[in-house]
Design a protein around this nucleic acid. Structure first.
Lengths: 191, 191
DNA sequence: CAAACAAACTAACAAGTGTTAGTTTTATGT
DNA sequence: ACATAAAACTAACACTTGTTAGTTTGTTTG
């Protein structure tokens, strides 16, 4: 982690602070103190507070879009596609625990990038819903309202960042498997 | 809605603003403008910005605690208990859409009430987990890690506020039934 | 060594923050 | 009509906000 630029370091530290208190409650002086410098010095590396938020959020949002495109273009069954999406969320969330908090809580404070972000998000949700609908049509998935299904699964996946850091040792593969079971097969015991 | 006090009205409007921008980003002048008054006038009805947040959050947190106590003391099976908890979340969330946002996003900005809030929340989670463990012991629920199960179900339920207002007409009972199916039985089609 | 550059610093700004004090308006009950 | 109380107002406060300008320090390169 020693070949990261000073800018990247600032953004990484900012994401951590944003997770704890939210974008609006974190001041440039807070960020500077954590970085062991004065607030004005931050501006040698970044252009504005807003820019930090943009980089944190848009970087992750694009990763999800790319991941979804890969899943979408595969020839897997819908259930397998869903499992791949679950794995995508576990992977991206575990690698961006702090950034995911900003993405979930502070996207509304985006300014110039607010439109582009919303587009990425709604495209993602549409793709997700489409997979569920195909699954229902193919008889793989129960014919419950796709909206409710998507909401249920996606909010769980979007909240992973809250929960992954609490696990002592994170077995990502095990977590992915458990989530797949719970989200797809439910929790009820079958006989 | 005409027998609500001016204080209650302020708190209700504040909750709506908090949902849109978060506690820290909402200024007393924002709140006053929305209420068609000057910021200083707010202080005829409330003592501080912090107090508004406390009332919004603690009021709801207590409702969940009371609801959980009722479920806990019943003689229902674990699956029925879970369904009752789902119904509890649908009910409280639909009646406090704006407040739920503050509870989920802004609890960390509580000051005097931060400790009490955290206690309520962790007690609630422990009760929830206990129900799942009993269900596993009784053979009603699949023997997956109770932590992962609780996380998955609870994050979905905690995010209901994001989603309920989007439904055109809200059939609360139908929503509760659909969620129960999805969260308990999963989405896969059984043959 | 000297030149060049990156990255820290001090000082200051204009605007916005929650909140208080004191005053005026508006409605209520006798 | 008048006293009372509720609820609005104006003005101001001390402090914090993001950001800029200009300067100094330290490190690399020719």
């Amino acid at each position: 982690m020693e070949n990261e630029t000073r800018q990247e370091e600032i953004i990484r530290v900012a994401a951590k602070l944003f997770k704890e208190k939210g974008y609006s409650a974190v001041t440039m002086r807070d960020l500077a103190t954590t970085m062991n410098m004065k607030a004005a010095s931050l501006y040698n590396h970044i252009n504005s507070k807003q820019e930090i938020l943009e980089k944190i959020i848009m970087r992750i949002a694009r990763k999800f879009s790319v991941g979804m495109a890969t899943v979408k273009s595969s020839n897997d069954s819908c259930i397998v596609k869903l499992k791949k999406i679950i794995a995508l969320h576990v992977e991206v969330s575990s690698q961006n625990i702090y950034g995911m908090a900003a993405l979930n809580h502070d996207w509304m404070h985006l300014e110039a990038q607010l439109g582009p972000y919303k587009k990425l998000r709604s495209d993602y949700e549409n793709d997700f819903k489409e997979i569920l609908k195909e699954g229902i049509a193919a008889g793989e998935i129960s014919p419950i309202k796709p909206d409710v299904m998507m909401f249920s699964i996606l909010t769980t996946l979007r909240s992973l960042y809250l929960w992954i850091p609490k696990k002592e040792v994170i077995h990502l593969e095990e977590l992915t498997n458990n989530l797949s079971k719970i989200l797809i097969n439910g929790i009820i015991k079958e006989n």
